[in-house]
Nucleic acid binder design. Structure first.
Lengths: 113, 113
DNA sequence: CGGGATCCGTCTTGATACTG
DNA sequence: CAGTATCAAGACGGATCCCG
């Protein structure tokens, strides 16, 4: 995933940002209220630590996520979606709705709000 | 892209199907009315022939696309979205809407219907 | 010539081990 | 706990080859 802008198409350019198998899973978890690295790791999909770190960095770079460092412990920051990041909710909703309707066996884990 | 189902989450499972940088671009073109291999190749993003063939096969396997062989020329088939494939339209719409709203410089090429 | 398949070098991904 | 380092496996991209 290079992230390079390939065209002026809103679909292709958005996919440059979130078009991979992990980014939207991370966004999903953040939308569901998770904030810490370890929490994000716990999801049943089993994302690897380096992939999670990479995706969080990319999302930060795209200003979809911000990292909030802790004042007490230096290595205990948390991650939150920016407003821009939260605006991905309709995209996630559409993906989730499609999955629920067309992939038997899938179900909602907990309220996405 | 392995395509293996990793969880029961509708988001993660949907991403197993369409979570990469090319699949939704192909679906976009099919929704826009393109039907032939060569047409799909012409898009400004510049997909490689092997990648396009691979994505079409995967989409066929997932029953999102069907290949319709020509009666006259045997090597002149066309591809069309199935009903199931067309049902991805809201997902594509959400992605496109997000891109138009948040990625400056992106614009619609031609009516998506 | 159109519609792919195959080969191959490069870049990305992901599992695991390791560190502050 | 929160990542980084390492390294094998796989995906990408493009050039070419092949077949009707």
């Amino acid at each position: 995933m290079t992230g390079s802008r390939r065209s002026s198409c809103p679909v292709a350019c958005t996919l440059d940002l979130i078009g991979d198998r992990w980014t939207l899973v991370v966004v999903r978890d953040l939308l569901f209220g998770k904030t810490r690295f370890a929490e994000l790791l716990e999801s049943p999909e089993g994302i690897a630590t380096n992939i999670l770190a990479d995706r969080l960095h990319r999302l930060e770079e795209a200003e979809l996520v911000e990292r909030i460092p802790s004042e007490t412990h230096r290595a205990r920051g948390s991650y939150r979606l920016t407003l821009r990041g939260e605006s991905l909710r309709p995209v996630l909703k559409a993906v989730m709705t499609w999955g629920l309707a067309h992939l038997p066996g899938t179900r909602m884990p907990s309220p996405p709000r």
